[in-house]
Amino acid sequence: MVDIYGLMTRDESNRITLDTSVTPIRSLKMLTVTGDGSYNQYFSLPDIKANSFVVVDSLFVTTGSNWSPQAFWTEGQLHLRGAGTRQWQVMILSNGTEPFSAIGEYGLRSKNNGILNQVDSVNRVLAIWYSGSFEFGVYWRPGMRAEISGGFYYSFPEPVTTFERPLVFLNAEDYMMVSGFYVTGQPGNWTGWGISHAGIYYQYHGLPVSDYMKMKWFLASYQARISAAGSYDVLLRGGSGNRIFKSTDNLALLNSQPSNNSFYNDGEPIEAGATYHSSSRMPWTSSFGDYVLANALFSHTNIQQTQNPIIINWGGFLPGNRSIIKMYAQNYANSPATGISANGRTLFAARPMRNL
């Protein structure tokens, strides 16, 4: 018999709710940085390690979409391009390989055969709050959750009260091309999420416009949800009484993280009247079960040096192919930012610990 080290909990249905042999996504540190208006800006962040990965996310809301700067990082340094003068949320994430060195933390720590598994006030897990499915298409039909033309919006039954925006992960049964990602609300009171553009890209990939993208998604937060009456669970709180972990929560698990500049130009740009769409790609996981983080990848991009600085950044998965993720950036024909690519978008692949 193989020796097993660690901790496992189950609920009243005998489902495993905590297993220390499984390492979920963790947050080492959350902080904010503020742009100074320069096109390229660099921040010294010693907390970014060689095996870290970084999510740079918006903290403000605009009608129909949010925009994000391009973000690149190396060990100890964050590089933002086109950040303007706004404040940005920076989440430095890891997969649980840090030493147990912090003092004055609250939570639970265990170690399983060299896999560090930490649940505490610093190394927090992503709890899945909401999930669902919907269809996108050019032509609306009864039953589709399309509240704006070509778009989708979901209002949270209960607001997410974290300072940072909750993270939304997208997947599809097959083909997926989306853009215009946004979250409604404000820090401490996030109320919903949506996509303002989708279903208009079929023609670029040879698909009939009557086809529908069959989408699925889940939303995860670093805040544990309130337990239902009569539930079986372990609940951990931080020093301020905030809920940091609940064993009945379904967790978002890290599956793969690309390097931060894995996109490269590939293929001819798509020309559409006065605009063209530069084409890029990066390797993906080859698994249809993996979701992609939408927060920065599918939001609009600020390239700042043109008359139309906010451009549409769109992409997803080509039919029958999960070996790559395909991205396009819309550029105006008279723009000096010819050939801008999707490099620097912050993303990673994840999947739920338990079936949704």
Rank of each mutant, 00 (worst) to 15 (best):
R15T: 06
M176G: 00
N255C: 08
A337R: 14
G238H: 07
G84F: 11
N295K: 06
T338Y: 13
A83T: 00
V122I: 15
D57G: 04
F43N: 02
G315I: 07
G151E: 08
W140M: 03
Y276R: 11
D233T: 10
S262I: 00
L59V: 01
P319E: 02
F134M: 07
N40Y: 10
G206R: 12
L236C: 04
N117S: 12
P69H: 01
D120W: 09
N255V: 12
V56T: 01
Q186K: 12
V183T: 14
S279D: 04
R15V: 07
N51I: 05
I4T: 08
I325F: 13
A50P: 00
A274P: 13
G132E: 06
N261L: 01
G180Q: 02
A333M: 12
V168D: 00
V168K: 02
D249Y: 10
V209H: 13
D174M: 06
P336K: 03
H277L: 05
L207W: 05
R145P: 00
P319I: 05
E105S: 02
N313T: 10
V61K: 11
P352W: 07
R345S: 09
G241I: 05
V160E: 03
N171K: 07
F152L: 05
I270S: 01
S133H: 13
M327F: 11
N113K: 14
N321Q: 09
F72Y: 01
S247W: 13
V22H: 04
A349L: 09
T162Q: 07
P352Y: 07
S44P: 03
V122N: 13
N250R: 10
G199P: 05
A296K: 07
G35F: 08
A296L: 00
N171C: 03
F245A: 13
R165P: 10
S323Y: 08
A229Q: 06
L297A: 08
V55R: 13
T248L: 14
G339I: 04
Y130H: 10
L293F: 11
L93C: 14
V2S: 12
S247C: 07
Y130L: 01
M30L: 13
